[in-house]
Write a protein that binds this DNA or RNA. Structure first.
Length: 201
DNA sequence: CGGGAGATGGGCT
DNA sequence: GCCCATCTCCCGA
């Protein structure tokens, strides 16, 4: 049996949540909560936008051309964080899914802030509106204090974990192609909450 | 407002 | 040397 870990008001999702097809996991993480305890304080937000990247048959996936020093975490066990640096300025946070060796992960693209709003604003720079704190993959990493040091750690328990949140009915979920890629741009593996103001543009 | 260019640095060929 | 799962600012309307 799996013992789910409760921290404060949040209960971490069990490992079985990630041992499924990456597209299913991407859909199921909508409404879940990403939470982080750091030296600076606690921050958390509801996941409102995700994308699936699937192993060797998906040209947009970092894992498509095999294991490298950057992407090796994707080939490890599910339930770990894959964090990478992009465009010289930003980090992107993913969760590894499926079974070890497949090389698939869900990119978390946007959050609706729940806890630690002041800390988020401090990390992002003063003068930012709430709507601008976590409405994009690079923005949410900055607001949550996620960077390369988190690459490879588990998201099954603190300091960085994903917890169960609100249930989301299919009627509230929109599906589209993925953002910001060229290869594989026709594949509809982006999921987001309809009419949620924190979804990226 | 919406679109576009520039910033910026690591990964990979 | 080119590509990149992004963000911000600045411009024109």
């Amino acid at each position: 049996m799996t013992m789910e870990k409760t921290v404060g008001k949040y209960t971490a999702l069990p490992p079985s949540s990630y041992r499924r097809n990456v597209v299913e996991v991407a859909r199921s993480l909508l409404g879940a909560v990403l939470a982080h305890y750091s030296d600076e304080g606690f921050t958390a937000g509801i996941i409102v936008e995700t994308e699936a990247y699937r192993g060797s048959d998906d040209p947009a996936c970092h894992a498509a051309r095999g294991k490298t020093p950057r992407n090796y975490v994707m080939f490890g066990p599910p339930g770990r964080a894959y964090v990478y640096f992009i465009y010289g300025n930003h980090y992107c946070f993913n969760v590894v899914t499926g079974t070890e060796g497949q090389g698939e992960a869900v990119l978390i693209r946007a959050l609706e802030p729940l806890d630690g709003l002041e800390l988020m604003r401090k990390r992002r720079g003063m003068g930012h509106k709430i709507i601008n704190l976590t409405s994009g993959p690079g923005k949410l990493c900055a607001a949550m204090g996620i960077s390369r040091e988190h690459n490879g750690i588990t998201v099954l328990a603190p300091p960085l974990f994903i917890a169960s949140g609100i249930g989301v009915e299919d009627a509230r979920v929109a599906v589209s192609t993925r953002i910001g890629i060229k290869q594989g741009r026709d594949i509809p593996w982006r999921f987001y909450l309809k009419e949620n103001a924190f979804v990226s543009r």
